[in-house]
Design a protein around this nucleic acid. Structure first.
Lengths: 195, 195
DNA sequence: GACGTGCTGTACCGAGCGGTCAACAAAGGC
DNA sequence: GCCTTTGTTGACCGCTCGGTACAGCACGTC
């Protein structure tokens, strides 16, 4: 047999993900990746391929986590409408606004790369299609529970909620005051999910 | 006297703006800027300072144009509510989706740089504060014209509309199908501006 | 037409980039 | 204890980056 790896792949991907999240794709150098992962260039290349492949691995890990998070929120909510409201307000994050300013790794890197990197664009569309589906099912459940008018189209409502959530995410990234941001998110939830 | 400039500053800023819009800040090299402007390095540096200063000049030119565009739309609309609807749908652009995929220079570069460049973040906040104000005035006018319920808070409504518009802008950048994108934008306008 | 000033093009700089490679280290099989 | 295999390390590659320096050039003035 051969020499075993001295690092945990998941741990490295997590650290790399955080780095890309904070500095973007172009803003992250191989030196940064070596520093946060604790690995040498050779090990990174042997284990994950080049910078772009490593980024995609980290991005997919992140989108999987986001997808699972949304599903869990919907499944565990006593009433579906609460999960939908929570989804719209979720980008606000902590009260000091650090999470809001950080934004979403997928949104940040899609904005940076979508125009030139079809793989990233496809990953974004795939992720949002999945989220839209989960939200649409939640809207249907909220209709059964009497919290959303039966006249609303579930999928259209889901897409409106997704767009609203992404808008809140972006305004958070601009550094908008957290209380104003939260008020905006709640206002959107109120208007898109009338009582 | 000395040798006069052989280029028009506005023309150069326009070309530079387009380049940053297409490729982002980090994705644009000085060579790119020389190519699209037709100027040498020396001329660029003498006229605009370094890359970052040149970028800020181009960005401010862009945000000024956006601000003026929104004001003009509101002023020239027969009914204010039409301008508000048009604002939310505006990121959709042309039917083939090229404009939607391109997104907004301010949104793209804010997402890329806001975390590390306080000047860009401030420029974004300033621009959106101005747009919010114009939208709020339009909401108030729409209320006078009987198109928006008098119970709505103009500023809160304006911020909800802005977030929705930015969400649509982002979904457009992911490459979402244009018809779906337009339906989402119209749906948001319908829900945020009830009849 | 000589002058001087500011624009222009180019050669050049050090630094950092992403990526490669060969030598070395650590494990289990024999 | 040697061999094979794989992981690790760090030196090294060519290249492009943003930025500077400078020589020459075109123009309005006098």
């Amino acid at each position: 047999m051969a020499r075993p790896r001295q690092f945990d792949e998941e741990t490295v991907l997590h650290a790399v993900c955080e780095q890309f999240w904070d500095a973007g794709y172009a803003g992250t150098s191989l030196q940064d990746l070596m520093r946060v992962s604790g690995l040498g260039k050779g090990s990174l290349y042997a284990a994950f391929g080049d910078k772009h492949e490593l980024f995609l691995r980290a991005l997919r890990r992140y989108t999987d986590a986001v997808d699972r998070g949304v599903r869990r929120t919907v499944e565990s909510a006593p009433r579906a409408v609460e999960a939908l409201r929570a989804f719209v307000v979720s980008p606000v994050g902590d009260p000091d606004g650090a999470a809001a300013r950080r934004g979403c790794l997928l949104a940040n890197t899609t904005t940076e790369l979508a125009a030139t990197d079809p793989v990233v664009a496809e990953e974004a569309r795939r992720t949002y299609a999945g989220i839209t589906q989960v939200l649409a099912q939640a809207v249907a459940r909220a209709q059964e529970e009497g919290d959303v008018p039966a006249s609303a189209d579930p999928e259209e409502t889901a897409r409106a909620l997704l767009a609203a959530q992404q808008g809140v995410t972006y305004l958070g990234r601009t550094g908008m005051d957290v209380r104003t941001l939260e008020a905006t998110a709640r206002s959107l939830a109120d208007r898109l999910l009338p009582v």
